[in-house]
Computed example of a mutant assay.
Amino acid sequence: MAKSVLTVGLVALGLVWALAQTAQADDMKRYVVAGSQAAKLESCVEPTELMRRQHMEFIKHQRIATVHEGIRIEKYSLSGCVDCHISYNAEQIPQPINQADQFCGACHAFAAVNLNCFDCHAAVPNGTPLDAAAMAAHDAAGVAAQVQSHRDGENH
């Protein structure tokens, strides 16, 4: 009797574990936002599992090469990540990639990791015009012209 209860308990535990793994895999799949360029690709610049675990190392290495050594390559550039993983709303306005329902924001929220790249870097592709709500918010802060000028003319 005790053996069969233990067996049933272990089987139930195994089923719960399998369901949790499936749910987690489904959660991870949603981080590639439908309609983005990335959704059309089989993998990123490296295999998906490697990118999930090592992307910060690639970005840090790219930062050192760019800032300290003056080497600019596109393979691991943050702007390349944004350009590929960005999604657009119904009006074709890019959604900031660090929002909680977007590529970077969703995965970092899931992993409970602070996302501070976009404190300095653009969360939408360079040259993207600001939507009306963003423009109004920047007008209120008195920086709309500076932000739009930066997006129109500079790579960041």
Rank of each mutant, 00 (worst) to 15 (best):
C107M: 11
H121V: 15
D131G: 03
C84T: 12
Q102H: 06
C104W: 06
Q99D: 14
P96N: 07
F110N: 09
T128Q: 06
N126T: 11
C120Q: 11
H121Y: 13
S77L: 00
I93L: 05
A100W: 01
C84L: 07
F118Q: 10
G80K: 06
S87Q: 02
N98F: 09
N98S: 10
Q92E: 09
C117W: 14
G80T: 12
V124Q: 08
I93P: 00
C107Y: 06
A123F: 03
C81A: 09
I93M: 10
P125N: 13
E91V: 00
C120E: 15
V113F: 15
Q102I: 02
Q99M: 07
A90C: 01
G105F: 02
C84D: 05
I86W: 03
C84K: 02
N114A: 15
D131M: 05
G80H: 00
F118K: 11
D83L: 14
S87V: 02
A112L: 10
P129L: 03
V113I: 14
A109C: 05
E91G: 08
A100G: 12
C107A: 11
Y76A: 02
C120T: 14
I93G: 05
C107V: 06
D119F: 11
P94L: 04
F118V: 10
H85Q: 04
E91I: 00
Y76C: 00
L78I: 14
P94D: 06
Y76P: 00
H108S: 03
N98Q: 12
